[in-house]
Nucleic acid binder design. Structure first.
Lengths: 195, 195
DNA sequence: GCCTACATGTAAATAGTTACATGATTGA
DNA sequence: TCAATCATGTAACTATTTACATGTAGGC
């Protein structure tokens, strides 16, 4: 799944709550997802256009927002069409091809409140498997070349490995919580506090 | 600094030790740097070509390696030219524009054994400052929109923030070690064990 | 004989950023 | 009135991956 498709999904998810302008979408995207992919307008607006062309979104010029009694020109609110809602629902119910990729996982995770427990578990476990494989791959390939590396390079590797290990631990906690307290869609309500 | 320039620097660093084939460079690149940017040949070979055109590298066809008594055809060994060595030395002595970026930092760090203590400290501190800024930015922008996010999104943010915080701690340790045990170029020798 | 790893390269497609162009609104 | 933020969009450029094309060497 290319980043663009991830972006499409993320936008679908955001607009499920309420219609938004492109500018607002960009800001939310910057704050919702981990640390913290900035997204250029050069990516965003073409993507929105594509989605409108695909009939996933409809556009509304102005006054969708009562606040804006004053004459603000040239802002466009994007709203999910029925096709868009259907697409989102389908994505949410599926494992989502490659929800294990870094970007895609973050987007999927940020929409966990809109999915059911079984899907959440599938995604968490898929991600965990993926990371464990990575760990395996890397540490075995490392053994073969260990002596070629000096102390700094070795430290860099150790640190990188540690990061991935921590990521796995985090997932393990989430999986455990999800198993011990499964629940349905929980939009806006809380999972058992994972801290 | 675009990724390509980082790649150029990384290649310069690797070839400082010994001449290598493109294929070997790719493998080493995959194992030396954190977890673990795979690099396609479609990036690598054009980059090597560019470097040859810029006179940073010279090419040698075959038999530079005594082992290869048998007739292995069509392998090309790349070796640093004097200009290449000079360029590497210049890069190593400089802060290197944007050594604070994620990719660039990893590459610079992996070559710490070839630099002096003062440069190492400049780079570590620059990186630390950069990350601290990121932390600041993000947590302040988060405060403004906190209530719009559900529990999963909040958890994702918490986790992202924690990762960056840990990275800062790691740097602090390295900086402390570097300060308490400064030393010159340490190619192939060890820094105080940072574990 | 076949699979895996070694080995080099290019063309086409894809993705993404930067810089530009434009203009309104808000608050100091 | 000046700066910041809101707001939309495109064109040119840069970067990068994927798929293809081609062949050797070593082990089972």
């Amino acid at each position: 799944m290319a980043k663009t498709d991830v972006l499409t999904l993320a936008i679908l998810g955001m607009l499920a709550e309420q219609p938004l302008h492109g500018y607002q979408i960009r800001k939310l995207l910057g704050s919702e997802l981990g640390p913290f992919r900035a997204l250029s307008y050069g990516s965003l607006y073409p993507c929105l256009k594509r989605m409108v062309a695909d009939d996933l979104l409809s556009v509304e010029g102005e006054d969708f927002d009562a606040r804006a009694a004053s004459s603000r020109r040239s802002r466009i609110a994007y709203r999910l069409t029925d096709a868009g809602k259907a697409k989102l629902a389908a994505e949410l119910a599926s494992d989502g091809a490659h929800s294990w990729d870094d970007d895609a996982f973050d987007v999927r995770f940020s929409m966990f409140g809109k999915t059911d427990s079984a899907t959440r578990l599938r995604i968490l476990e898929g991600r965990r498997t993926r990371l464990a494989e990575r760990l395996e791959e890397v540490s075995s390939s490392l053994k073969k070349v260990r002596d070629r590396h000096d102390a700094y390079t070795a430290e860099l590797q150790r640190h990188g490995l540690e990061q991935v290990e921590r990521e796995v631990q985090w997932l393990d906690q989430l999986i455990e919580t999800e198993r011990s307290a499964p629940r349905g869609n929980t939009t806006k309500s809380a999972p058992a506090d994972p801290n």
